[in-house]
């Protein structure tokens, strides 16, 4: 078996005094789609930022393609990032460029392709996300869902080895959701790239993911293939995946007891 593309060992991460991750071990297999799920605010976005070295872990190491990504200098890190694509939760398009130029941006920065070739590649990617007709619009003229799809086109335009998707499906209508799922799946199968998907959409994720991690309270609560989770999942995972209001999962951000807080008993 090939070594995993991303190996996270003994990862701990704090935000001030708040512990986001506590001694987490996690592997991302090459050429597979790995999903990260968990309640809102548990640190899924944080995990993606740790993997891409936008944040430094407090303790522990993250190996990407055999290299400790936090031990690289800026040049090596940038070399590594050219092989990574990231879809930001907010899209994070450059607001002073139109859609076409946003998608063309990584190509213009990192390749010496001529304008014709760039146009060709950009239009292919825009077509894949259904926005070829929006090429001349500015980001401020797009809806949230469209914004995210442009960001997706930009993330894949350099044909990276690994793509990090932060909530690719949220804000998409059922049709574009289906198209995106298919797109992610085909890219993964045909190009052999590795995908990490953060998402809340249980059904969609179960349909395309090869492996699922469910994290909460700084720990991995459950993991396995979609089928395994279906069968053997803990009480916890069952409640989370089915979206039931009652059970071991906390819906609330850590707080005082409701009654105590409400009536100011001290």
């Amino acid at each position: 078996m090939k070594s995993p593309l991303v190996e996270i060992t003994k990862l701990s991460f704090n935000r001030g005094s708040r512990i986001i991750f506590n001694n987490v071990n996690l592997d991302i297999e090459r050429g597979k789609i790995t999903a990260i799920m968990g309640p809102s605010g548990t640190g899924k976005t944080t995990l993606l930022k740790l993997i891409s070295a936008q944040l430094e872990p407090t303790v522990g190491s993250i190996m990407v393609d055999g290299q400790n990504i936090h031990g690289l200098d800026q040049e090596e890190l940038f070399e590594m990032r050219k092989r990574m694509g990231m879809l930001f939760q907010s899209g994070a398009l450059l607001t002073d460029l139109d859609v076409f130029d946003n998608v063309a941006y990584p190509l213009r920065e990192h390749t010496r392709l001529d304008e014709r070739m760039i146009r060709y590649l950009v239009l292919i990617k825009l077509h894949a996300v259904g926005l070829r007709g929006a090429a001349q619009l500015m980001p401020s003229e797009l809806s949230g869902g469209m914004l995210r799809r442009v960001a997706l086109a930009r993330a894949i335009v350099l044909d990276p080895m690994m793509i990090l998707y932060d909530e690719p499906f949220s804000g998409q209508d059922p049709i574009s959701m289906g198209v995106l799922m298919k797109l992610i799946k085909t890219m993964n199968d045909n190009l052999g790239l590795t995908s990490i998907i953060v998402s809340h959409d249980v059904n969609e994720v179960s349909a395309i993911a090869d492996y699922i991690y469910i994290i909460s309270d700084g720990q991995i609560m459950d993991q396995g293939t979609p089928a395994e989770l279906e069968e053997t999942a803990s009480e916890w995972a069952k409640q989370f995946l089915k979206g039931l209001p009652d059970g071991p999962v906390h819906f609330h951000y850590p707080a005082l007891d409701y009654a105590i807080d409400l009536f100011e008993i001290s």
């Binding site: 990032r81 694509g85 990231m86 907010s90 994070a92 450059l94 607001t95 990584p106």
Partner: peptide, 18 residues
């Protein structure tokens, strides 16, 4: 400030652009 708020700096860094 706007670029920072909308994560454009992070996006640039992720595209290996300083």
């Amino acid at each position: 400030g706007l670029m920072k708020t909308t994560e454009q700096f992070s996006a640039l860094e992720m595209m290996a652009v300083d």
